[in-house]
């Protein structure tokens, strides 16, 4: 009996919020480390097809992206509606691929260069002709590790 009454008088019931900034900072650092800023604005419409046998691309710094698709509406009067290649943040042709690969390669430490992967982010509606041209160019440039970007079909298990 006396125990309860004693306590109530003394303590002012306040939770210390002093550690709140630390917690928030921790969250902040987590998100800063985990997320990667999208470096390129997509100028072509890319909706990758569905597939089931997927492998994950591990190290982002070892990946270069080749986008293939029809230009988005904003660029259609300039570039037409035929499928185009986008390298980095600008439209390109097949002939620009070797330079693009080389530019990416010099940023990668020498030991890791064999692990460089090209991620082909290709729209599902594009025909194989342009994809084939890109593949041939990649082979000619010695870039043989290729990842056909795809996503998991949500309707299948």
């Amino acid at each position: 009996m006396s125990k309860f009454s004693k306590k109530r008088g003394k303590a002012s019931p306040e939770v210390s919020t002093a550690s709140l900034p630390d917690i928030i900072f921790m969250l902040l650092f987590f998100f800063m480390v985990v997320t990667v800023l999208r470096d390129a604005e997509l100028k072509v419409k890319v909706s990758t097809p569905f597939a089931s046998e997927l492998t994950k691309l591990e190290e982002k710094s070892l990946v270069n992206y080749v986008y293939i698709g029809r230009p988005v509406k904003k660029y259609q009067n300039l570039y037409g509606t035929k499928p185009r290649i986008q390298l980095g943040d600008k439209f390109a042709t097949v002939a620009d691929i070797p330079l693009f690969l080389e530019k990416h390669k010099v940023k990668v430490p020498e030991a890791k260069r064999p692990k460089i992967t090209s991620s082909l982010r290709v729209d599902g509606e594009v025909t194989m002709g342009i994809v084939q041209d890109v593949k041939t160019q990649l082979r000619k440039s010695g870039q043989l590790k290729v990842n056909y970007s795809a996503k998991k079909d949500p309707n299948v298990n």
């Binding site: 919020t17 709140l20 900034p21 928030i24 900072f25 969250l27 902040l28 998100f31 800063m32 985990v34 997320t35 990667v36 800023l37 999208r38 990758t48 597939a51 046998e53 997927l54 492998t55 994950k56 691309l57 982002k60 990946v63 992967t117 991620s119 082909l120 593949k135 990649l138 082979r139 010695g142 870039q143 043989l144 590790k145 290729v146 990842n147 056909y148 970007s149 795809a150 996503k151 998991k152």
Partner: peptide
């Protein structure tokens, strides 16, 4: 805390976790 929150929300909004998955293929030389 407010400043950190602001930064946190900024990063939450601007970044996208891109799932990079696909079919890996080794092209012939």
């Amino acid at each position: 805390a407010d400043i950190a929150f602001l930064l946190l929300i900024f990063f939450l909004v601007t970044t996208t976790i891109v799932e990079d998955k696909g079919i890996t293929v080794k092209l012939p030389p």
